[in-house]
Design a protein around this nucleic acid. Structure first.
Lengths: 331, 331
DNA sequence: GTGAAAGCGCTAACAG
DNA sequence: CTGTTAGCGCTTTCAC
């Protein structure tokens, strides 16, 4: 069924090399011959065999993406952006889900490394050493994680937390609870650090309520801590936790925002759909995905260019109905 | 950097063919030599070059997945299951997102067809004719869509709708509204048909409230129709619409389920997180994804085996808090 | 500007 | 059971 370059060459009455050249270096081929060749290509529906091309060029035209968990609403948005951008650039996307398991992630990474031109790691849980080893196999770009010697697309988590704290302070709160996420998470640490710094800067008390799984259940579990600490406002590690918290608070009859203000992080679609709609900090997922592809392409073109880290992408506070002026004075 | 089969062969003191055989047909190689070869393979970290292998076998070891929209919470779950299963089977997954655009889908499908052993189409919007043409290029499996001559993994949407209607009827409702989804959708038609049949069977009135985009906004837009029709219970095309409706109803001060019972469809994670938690019909996404891979593998092995369609996968009613006994008689 | 030839890494007959 | 041979479809020197 497959039509090869030789078929095209024969049809056009030229050699295979010329057809090949017409495709890869059009300027090195006579305009007339090129036109004729193109015509035959279109007519025969010729598509170059990628395996054969890849065998000789060493390029696959594929880009690998490994995410921690596709079921987490954070990741599909990143993947979607990556796939779209890659497609624009003529690359196809290989996707793998590590299930938050570093061992699985390592295995997948090595497997993919052999069949892609570069790898994007999202929510990577790999130790720096593994990352470095991987880097020797193929170009790697990290999304929302920093590691020495590896390119990454960073987002200003700390500033996002700062904006959230500032918002809560503007509403009059003097004490703010922080519902933490998984301790291993890069974002968690940055967000916590940002919240701490902001608490100091804005002269308010930050009550750290513990670390919870980044899930709806985790958020529900955090509700008791929030109640016990009697904080009038809470910043959560992410939206999913915030929604779990919201759910449980409402079930307890605690008014949001009347009794407790809640702020999430990420601005996943969920946040706008919660009731009351969740105030949150937007994490530029689509932008991050695009940039990751762009950086990867640059790396593929120049494998050992100096990796100048761009400044982190900005985050943005999105105020919705889950925060508001406190109904009663909060001291 | 790359270690080839020849390197392994030389190290083991055998020919390349023997190494190749040791990998693909271990039983045709002496146990001792095989062991020695395996040892060298492990020591040298040899990984077969897939391009070279693919060039000769015609197999890529890749499986393509095209989804309508990754940002729709329905799809990531399917993709995750597909990728997991594929990985178990030693296949890698190429992912593409068509953005609900049939033209883009067609282009992606043809592009992917050339570099995969088979294609899974999820939420396919392609005309039957295009599907058939595609089928000639490579094995294709459809998820939740039926088309003559093409293998598919079907789900019993009609029965899901029936279960939902039955539930509402059991609660005492005599009139039920149906908030439809996109008219082009296969699921929409099946669910509507199921609801109609069930309405007749259970002797109640089904009020069709129109067709809406399958989005949160679509659901919000449907709220007015629900109010105007004064129906005490509503079945929605899917969860996302149901959540939008819920949101708007609550904002209007309409109690759910006190004043109106609401049922969604799909059981996306969102449904459990809504407040009140959404009663819905579970669509077996993970199972469907797995089955799609299994069927695709069967097709790859025997391209023109008779395609015996398995019975549709069952759906299951999940009762949560958005439905309940009506507070007042509903006549 | 174009063609001939070589070979990428691997597998699949076919001998032995 | 193992080695030899040929070639998958393409790109890329290198002559012309």
């Amino acid at each position: 069924v497959a039509v090869t370059i030789t078929d095209v060459a024969r049809a056009a009455g030229v050699s295979a090399s010329t057809v090949s050249r017409a495709l890869s270096r059009p300027e090195r081929v006579d305009a007339a011959t090129r036109a004729a060749i193109m015509e035959h290509i279109a007519r025969l529906g010729y598509q170059p065999n990628r395996a054969a091309r890849s065998l000789i060029t060493g390029r696959t035209g594929n880009l690998g993406v490994i995410v921690a968990d596709l079921a987490n609403p954070f990741y599909p948005d990143v993947v979607k952006a990556i796939q779209n951008r890659a497609h624009q650039r003529g690359l196809t996307t290989l996707l793998a889900d590590s299930g938050e398991d570093p061992a699985a992630e390592l295995e997948l990474a090595h497997q993919l490394a052999a069949q892609v031109d570069g790898l994007v790691l999202c929510g990577a849980g790999l130790p720096d050493a593994d990352l470095l080893a991987l880097r020797r196999l193929c170009p790697v770009v990290l999304v929302n994680r920093e590691s020495a010697g590896i390119a990454s697309v960073l987002v200003d988590n700390a500033d996002g937390a700062r904006q959230a704290v500032r918002h809560l302070r503007a509403l009059g709160h003097q004490r703010i609870g922080y519902v933490g996420g998984p301790p291993a998470s890069h974002s968690h640490r940055q967000r916590l650090a940002g919240a701490r710094a902001a608490a100091e800067a804005f002269r308010l008390e930050l009550v750290e309520l513990g670390e919870f799984p980044a899930s709806f259940e985790g958020g529900m579990a955090a509700a008791d801590s929030v109640l016990l600490a009697e904080v009038p406002a809470v910043l959560c590690y992410n939206d999913v936790i915030a929604i779990g918290l919201l759910h449980r608070l409402v079930a307890y009859g605690v008014g949001v925002p009347a009794d407790v203000s809640v702020v999430g992080f990420d601005d996943v679609a969920l946040a706008a759909m919660a009731y009351p709609a969740l105030t949150t900090v937007r994490f530029p997922r689509a932008r991050a995905g695009q940039l990751a592809v762009d950086r990867l392409q640059a790396l593929i073109a120049q494998p050992d260019a100096a990796l100048d880290q761009a400044p982190p992408l900005p985050t943005e506070l999105v105020v919705r109905q889950s925060t508001g002026r406190p109904a009663r004075p909060t001291t």
